[in-house]
């Protein structure tokens, strides 16, 4: 379909050729025309349009799973009948579908950036409260875009691999490193580590032995935490080992053994129970979205 081939086909044309540019422009115009056309779609047609698009997108993966796919297929092998032809087509389309999904997701990623720009530009233009912070945000975004792109661009030449060594860096490489490694990564780490303070405060204020459930939760958490503390579990286990004197039953009372038993017997099984429950829910929701029965999915 859209596979890259050296011989020109309906779907592909030689690099930088007039034929390719013509097809690109025509396809873009058709795409934009459809977009404009959809703007005038009647209200009652909207829901079916979204439902059809959603259904056919999901149909590919359902068919790939359910349809017999040929194994040990040789290069240039012709399909043996229509069933195998569909199997070949499903297999060959995989890279295109995956690629399309990546591109579409990447284009939709931009939505978050667009939203951020919209809010902060509005705040600056209207000089709303704290508009200065919006200037800081946009300035940092611009700086990162400049240095990030310039750094990548500097690696595209023949010296690309050499830039893995900081001794060969130029201004833009230092700029990117300072912003990315020096600031962004450190701030990312700081942002996430702040939660430790809140979790400590929450544990201190909320962890009370008030009910059976709370007591079980607290007890398990305590055993898991203590078993993770090598100094405590080491001391405990050494004491048990010397007291057991080879008695395998007493050895079961080592802290690491108890923690392992809880982990393997109750923790894994209870999480598996949760996981099965969630899995059934996800499967049901997947089907509902695919068939546009879920209002948050394919409805309009």
């Amino acid at each position: 379909m859209l596979a890259q081939v050296e011989v020109p086909t309906f779907w592909s044309e030689p690099y930088n050729s007039p034929a390719l540019w013509t097809k690109l422009v025509v396809a873009l115009l058709i795409g934009l025309a459809v977009l404009v056309g959809l703007m005038y779609a009647p209200v009652r047609a909207r829901r079916p349009i979204v439902a059809v698009v959603t259904f056919f997108s999901g149909l590919y993966w359902v068919m790939l799973y359910a349809w017999p796919i040929p194994i040990n297929r040789q290069d240039n092998q012709l399909p043996n009948g229509p069933v195998e032809a569909v199997g070949f087509w499903l297999k060959d389309s995989n890279s295109v579908i995956v690629s399309f999904t990546q591109i579409l997701t990447a284009l939709l990623f931009g939505l978050g950036i667009y939203s951020l720009l919209r809010i902060h530009l509005q705040r600056i233009v209207k000089t709303q409260r704290d508009w200065g912070f919006s200037v800081v945000l946009l300035a940092c975004m611009s700086l990162m875009v400049f240095f990030g792109y310039a750094d990548w661009n500097s690696r595209l030449g023949e010296r690309g691999a050499m830039l893995d060594n900081p001794a060969n860096w130029g201004f833009v490489n230092f700029g990117r490193d300072f912003l990315f490694e020096g600031l962004l990564q450190q701030m990312d780490a700081a942002m996430f580590s702040v939660i430790a303070f809140y979790i400590l405060s929450a544990a201190y204020r909320a962890f009370r032995v008030r009910s059976v459930e709370a007591t079980i939760l607290l007890g398990t958490a305590l055993i898991v935490i203590l078993s993770l503390m090598g100094a405590v579990s080491g001391l405990w286990d050494d004491t048990i080992r010397s007291a057991a004197n080879g008695n395998t039953f007493i050895l079961n009372f080592q802290l690491t053994t108890i923690a392992d038993w809880i982990r393997n017997t109750f923790q894994t099984s209870s999480l598996r129970g949760i996981s099965f429950g969630v899995g059934i829910g996800l499967l049901a929701m997947g089907l509902r979205i695919w068939l546009s029965l879920e209002r948050t999915g394919g409805s309009a």
Binding site: S95, I97, V98, S99, Q102
Partner: peptide, 15 residues
């Protein structure tokens, strides 16, 4: 999609 692509057709996914 990427993981499914790697699973079904790694060559196509990384091309």
């Amino acid at each position: 999609a990427a993981t499914n692509g790697i699973s079904q057709d790694l060559k196509g996914a990384f091309t």
